[in-house]
């Protein structure tokens, strides 16, 4: 069953499009990574799914219904980001009480254990927490509420490396025990990729790729070798990324659709073939230019 369905979604702020003709279908009970650069429209898309933003065009359906102002959606969705603003008059333990009241699947034991493990002070006010602590608490809230649709928008902002690892591990373990649809957005893929099932790449308000993570890892292939040899065999259109290693040597990432003949040809000409790491690939695909930072410094 498709839990999220967006058709030609537009969202315009003033004169600028945050989402433009975005179409996407997400299936139930998966962990989906939403990857894009800052400003690509990740937050706008996620907030639209959470019913907090009205799209200016197109159609969005979550659980088969329009999410805006929808009680059923609200009861089954939690949206977690680092901007969550709780009542200034409530302490952490009071917020937990409120969450338990609202969310049917709330697991108090899990919340209490995580709070204890991560060392969040129950008697603090939310705005007294440090940035990392606040993110940790928000993430705990997102986990313990066990909503059928759980959305984490850049959940690890401000967290330490070890806390991030712990959080992703906790997310995976709780997902294994209670499968549900979890969307995690990030501008970085590497720490996240192992727990993902699917990946969605978004660039300039458009969904440019939606694949299973395993397919994504085989999506591209890296070629390094003689510039002329590679350019003679590889079609220019399929080049995703290009980096000059030296005068004559070049590294190129291409769509993994080369024919057997091309592959043997390249191999025979001494071109090295490597797989492209998912994190690198996502970066290549979401970058605006095909080259890298080196191109900036290249004297023409």
């Amino acid at each position: 069953m498709s839990i999220v369905s967006c058709q030609h979604l537009d969202k315009k702020y003033k004169k600028q499009y945050a989402l433009k003709d975005l179409t996407i279908e997400l299936e139930e009970n998966r962990i989906i990574g939403l990857i894009g650069r800052n400003g690509a429209g990740k937050t706008t898309l996620l907030k639209t799914l959470a019913g907090q933003i009205v799209p200016t065009g197109g159609e969005v359906k979550v659980f088969g219904e329009n999410p805006f102002n929808n009680l059923k959606l609200s009861a089954n969705t939690i949206y977690v980001d680092d901007q969550m603003q709780f009542s200034l008059e409530m302490r952490i333990h009071e917020i937990l009480v409120a969450a338990e009241m609202f969310y049917e699947n709330w697991n108090r034991e899990l919340a209490d254990r995580l709070i204890y493990y991560f060392g969040v002070d129950r008697y603090d006010f939310h705005d007294q927490l440090s940035k990392g602590m606040a993110s940790t608490f928000n993430a705990i809230l997102g986990l313990a509420s066990r909503c059928p649709l759980t959305i984490f928008d850049e959940p690890t902002t401000g967290m330490d490396y070890s806390v991030r690892q712990d959080f992703y591990r906790a997310l995976l373990k709780d997902y294994i025990a209670h499968p549900r649809t979890i969307i995690v957005s990030s501008h970085l893929l590497n720490e996240l990729e192992s727990i993902l099932e699917e990946i969605v790449l978004i660039k300039n308000g458009k969904c440019i790729l939606h694949e299973s993570i395993e397919d994504f890892k085989e999506y591209a292939i890296g070629l390094s070798g003689d510039k002329n040899v590679i350019q003679s065999i590889v079609d220019h259109d399929v080049i995703i990324h290009e980096k000059e290693l030296s005068e004559s040597q070049v590294y190129i990432a291409v769509d993994n659709h080369l024919s057997e003949k091309d592959i043997t040809g390249l191999k025979q000409q001494g071109v090295q073939m490597t797989s492209v790491e998912a994190a690198d690939l996502s970066m290549f695909l979401t970058n605006d230019t095909r080259g890298g930072i080196d191109d900036v410094f290249k004297s023409s």
Binding site: H93, E94, V97
Partner: peptide, 9 residues
Amino acid sequence: TYSPNNFFI
């Protein structure tokens, strides 16, 4: 009584 021990409330 969802918050039996809620001191502040």
